[in-house]
C-alpha cells in the first residue's frame, strides 16, 4: 500500500500545504512535524516558483519569501531527507512544471523515490499534457495528482479514470485563496468521479475554517486541502508559527471527523 493511501484511512483526511523555505528550510521542517502531530494526514510541500500563475496573493508572497531565503529544489530534497528520519506522514510536492523540467524528469522523480516523496501536483500540467512526465513518474512510483475544476464537465471521468494517488477537486474558479463562499456543486463532481473510480477525492481552494471544512465533507469528499489559511499563519507568526499550526490543524481535523 502506498503512503498516499494511508492518508485516507484515518477517517476524513486533512491535507495541509506550505511553501518550503518560508521563512526558512529549518522552520519548514519544524512546521511540517507540528502539522503531522496536529493530525494532518498528508502534507503538500510547495517548491517555490518565480511565477505561480495558479496562486492568489497569499501563496504568491510565500513563494517570494521562500525564493529570497535561497530555496532551491535541491534544498527541498534535503529537507525531505531529513523529514523522513522523523515521520512517515505522506508527502507530495506542489510546484510548477518548469522547475521540474529544468531539474530533469529522470533525476527529479528518482530523487522523489529515493527520499520518500509520494506524489506531485503541478497546477500547470493538465490531463492533456500528462504524457510529458507520465512514464518517468510511473517508473519511479511517484503519483501525478490530477486536478478537476468547476469547468471540467465531461472531462471529469476521463481525468478520474487516469488518476493516481488522489484527486484534487478545485472548489472554485480562479486562484488559491481564502473565500467566504464556495458555490460549485462539489457533490455532483464527486458523484461523477465515483461512477468511474474509487480513488479518494479531496477538495481544495478557498477553505479556511472548520465550518467550511465540515460543509465540504458533507458533499461526500474524502478530505479537505488547506493552503492559504496555513500560509497566512506562517506569514503572521513567522518563526513562531509552529504551535499555532498545530492548534489550527487539530481544530480542522477534529471538525471533519
Amino acid at each position: 500500500m502506498s503512503r498516499i493511501e494511508n492518508a485516507f484511512i484515518n477517517g476524513k483526511a486533512f491535507i495541509g500545504f506550505l511553501t518550503a523555505g518560508d521563512p526558512s528550510i529549518q522552520k519548514t521542517e519544524e512546521f511540517i512535524l507540528e502539522m503531522a502531530r496536529g493530525g494532518a494526514d498528508l502534507i503538500e510541500i510547495g517548491i517555490p516558483f518565480s511565477d505561480p500563475v495558479a496562486e492568489g496573493s497569499v501563496i504568491q508572497e510565500a513563494n517570494l519569501r521562500a525564493l529570497s531565503s535561497s530555496t532551491t529544489p535541491h534544498r527541498v530534497f534535503e529537507l525531505v531527507a531529513s523529514l523522513r528520519q522523523k515521520t512517515d506522514v505522506p508527502l507530495v510536492f506542489l510546484t510548477y512544471v518548469n522547475p521540474v523540467y529544468n531539474y530533469g524528469y529522470e533525476k527529479f522523480f528518482s530523487r522523489c523515490q529515493a527520499l520518500g516523496v509520494d506524489g506531485i501536483i503541478m497546477p500547470d500540467l493538465p490531463f492533456d499534457e500528462k504524457d510529458e512526465v507520465r512514464d518517468t513518474a510511473e517508473r519511479f512510483g511517484v503519483d501525478i495528482i490530477s486536478m478537476i475544476a468547476p469547468t471540467s464537465k465531461e472531462r471529469i471521468q476521463k481525468i478520474a479514470l487516469d488518476a493516481s494517488g488522489f484527486i484534487y477537486i478545485v472548489s472554485s474558479m480562479g486562484v488559491t485563496g481564502i473565500r467566504n463562499e464556495i458555490v460549485t456543486d462539489i457533490g455532483a463532481i464527486i458523484k461523477s468521479v465515483r461512477a468511474v473510480s474509487g480513488i479518494p477525492a479531496a477538495v481544495g481552494f478557498g477553505i479556511a475554517t472548520p465550518a467550511q471544512a465540515k460543509e465540504i465533507i458533507k458533499t461526500g469528499a474524502d478530505g479537505v486541502i488547506v493552503g492559504s489559511a496555513i500560509v497566512k499563519i506562517i506569514e503572521q507568526y513567522g518563526d513562531y508559527a509552529g504551535r499555532y499550526l498545530y492548534d489550527y490543524v487539530k481544530s480542522m481535523k477534529d471538525a471533519i471527523n
Binding site: V53, A54, V97, P123, D124, L125, P126, F127, D128, E129, M147, I148, A149, P150, T151, S152, K153, R155, I159, V170, M173, G174
Partner: peptide, 9 residues
C-alpha cells in the same frame, strides 16, 4: 497547453 485545468475546456 500547459495551463490549469480550470482553463482547459
Amino acid at each position: 497547453q500547459f495551463v490549469p485545468e480550470t482553463l482547459m475546456n
